Simulated assay, not measured.
Amino acid sequence: MASITADYYNNNAQSFSDSTINVDMSALYNAFLPLIKTHGHILDAGCGSGRDALYFKQQGFTVSAFDASEALASIASEHLNQVVAVNTFQQITAQNQYDGIWCCASLLHVPKDELPQVFLKLQNALKPNGVLYVSFKYGTQERVHNGREFTDLNEDGLTALITHHTELKILKQWQSVDQRPERESEVWLNALIKAVPVL
């Protein structure tokens, strides 16, 4: 995560956590969790407040989590009652470790030219047949908005990234609207992506 974006989250961690902690994520959970084996290991990558990681833990999954913001990782550690690492996507080194990786509104802060390498790291971190969830704000540009850097993607952009640079397989892509109050005009691209075993 660029320092400008990390600075934003460190300076606004509590207000960001407060604004996102109660968002209804059930539709996304219902799309993702049935694809993860019972009591499997899920990585919440860029976990923010720890909202989703806590839900996964409550459903009986083993959960690991990290965030690039020290302040958000601290808040998430309290919510989860376990240590949340301070890491970036570029620092992922795990191999064949996770049944699922959840990247909800987090990969969108990775510069577009670094996404191919990051997707390879995510691919390597997944077990064979593991599933990755990602979401991006819908669009085609890189931009700075309210002190944060964003990489926007549409279906074609994500498909190109996955098919040209990885052995991952896109299971499903769909659009959704933001669930936060007064943000209904914002459209998100969601995708479920599978780690296909190499024969």
Rank of each mutant, 00 (worst) to 15 (best):
L28Y: 06
F32Q: 03
A45R: 00
C103T: 12
S49L: 03
A76L: 06
V84C: 09
A76T: 05
H39F: 01
A65L: 01
F89V: 14
G40H: 01
D67F: 00
P34N: 11
G60R: 11
E70Y: 00
A73K: 04
K57N: 11
S49T: 05
N30W: 04
F66D: 00
V84I: 12
I42K: 02
L35Q: 09
F61G: 05
A68F: 02
L43F: 06
L80C: 03
V63S: 08
G48R: 07
A68V: 13
I101G: 13
F66L: 10
L28W: 01
N87V: 08
C47T: 12
L43S: 06
V63E: 06
Q97A: 14
Q91K: 13
L72H: 08
N81C: 00
T62Y: 15
V63N: 00
I92K: 15
F66M: 02
A71H: 07
K37I: 10
Y55V: 14
C103K: 07
A76P: 11
G46S: 13
D67N: 04
D67L: 02
C103H: 08
G50F: 00
A31Y: 05
T38I: 08
K57C: 11
K57Q: 15
K37D: 04
I42D: 09
N30S: 08
C103M: 09
T88D: 10
Q97E: 13
C103N: 01
D44W: 12
S64F: 03
I42P: 12
L43M: 04
A68S: 13
G60W: 14
Q91P: 10
G60Y: 11
T38D: 07
A45Q: 05
F89P: 12
L35P: 04
F32R: 03
I75N: 04
G50Q: 03
S74H: 14
W102N: 12
F32M: 04
A76K: 01
N30D: 14
F32S: 04
H39P: 00
A85I: 05
D67G: 04
F61R: 08
S49K: 08
C47W: 14
Q90M: 14
N96S: 12
A53W: 03
C47K: 14
Q90H: 15
V86H: 03
R51E: 06
K37M: 01
I101H: 12
S69R: 01
V84W: 05
I75P: 09
Q91E: 11
A76Q: 00
Y98I: 11
T62E: 12
L35E: 10
I92V: 15
G50W: 02
Q91V: 09
H39I: 00
L54Y: 03
A53I: 07
A71G: 01
Q90I: 14
Q59L: 14
Q59D: 10
T38E: 12
A73Y: 05
I36C: 11
D44G: 05
V86K: 01
K57A: 14
V83I: 08
A53E: 00
F32V: 03
N30G: 11
G50Y: 02
R51H: 10
C103G: 13
C47S: 09
D52I: 03
L80G: 02
A31I: 01
I36L: 07
Q82M: 15
Q59G: 12
I75S: 07
A71E: 12
A65R: 02
I42L: 07
F89S: 11
